[in-house]
Simulated assay, not measured.
Amino acid sequence: MEPHKIALLDNYQLYQLLQNPAIDTRTLAALKKEYASRKLSGYEQERLAQKYAAAHTDVNTALEQKPWSPILTGFAYNKHFRYIAFLKVHGRKEEAKQHLLELYLGLALYFLGFIAFLLLFRFK
């Protein structure tokens, strides 16, 4: 990120970027330099830390709360696809793959059950 663009960030955006472990070292050094140059008060730094913690606590709680079991609720696919997208956005690709696999397995079981029902009770 270019230094003149870093100066355009507000304090919270700058704090969020500093908390991101995926940022390269050169950009991280520029971010730290800009953060130090702003000379934020202790109260302001504490407020930023609390705001960041509150925002990310909700995300972690939502990530840990799996919706319904996709095997049992295969036809609520919209909810499951939103949860899968949410997992992918937050870097949990393996959990997203597992949830998607369970969803497909659930749908397959429902369709097999429906076909078995049709074959069992077919009308003559």
Rank of each mutant, 00 (worst) to 15 (best):
M1C: 00
M1F: 00
M1G: 07
M1T: 11
P3D: 03
P3C: 03
I6D: 04
I6H: 01
A7F: 01
L8H: 04
L8E: 09
L9T: 00
L9R: 06
L9Y: 05
L9W: 08
D10W: 12
D10P: 03
Y12L: 08
Y12M: 07
Y12P: 03
Q13P: 03
L14Y: 00
Y15T: 02
Q16A: 07
Q16N: 05
Q16S: 04
L17Q: 11
L18W: 06
Q19E: 05
Q19T: 02
N20T: 07
P21V: 01
A22R: 07
A22Y: 00
R26Q: 08
L28N: 05
L28M: 09
A29G: 03
A30T: 01
L31E: 03
L31W: 13
L31N: 07
K32Q: 03
K33G: 03
E34G: 09
A36P: 01
A36Y: 00
R38N: 08
S41W: 03
Y43F: 02
E44K: 05
R47Q: 07
L48E: 01
L48S: 06
Q50S: 12
Q50E: 09
K51G: 01
A53N: 06
A53D: 09
A55I: 00
A55M: 04
H56T: 07
T57I: 12
T57K: 02
T57G: 08
D58T: 06
V59R: 05
N60T: 10
N60K: 12
T61W: 04
A62K: 10
L63E: 07
E64D: 12
W68F: 04
W68C: 08
S69T: 11
P70D: 10
P70W: 15
L72I: 04
T73G: 04
G74T: 04
F75I: 09
F75D: 11
A76V: 14
N78T: 13
H80G: 13
F81I: 14
R82M: 15
I84V: 14
A85G: 07
A85F: 15
F86N: 10
L87I: 01
L87K: 14
K88R: 14
K88N: 13
K88V: 12
K93W: 06
A96S: 12
A96N: 07
A96Y: 09
K97D: 11
Q98F: 09
Q98C: 02
L101G: 11
L101E: 12
E102M: 05
E102Q: 14
L103Y: 15
G106L: 06
G106P: 06
G106W: 02
G106Q: 04
L109K: 10
Y110I: 15
Y110S: 15
L112Y: 00
L112G: 11
L112N: 10
F114R: 10
F114T: 06
I115Y: 08
A116P: 05
L118G: 13
L119N: 13
L120M: 12
L120W: 14
F121C: 02
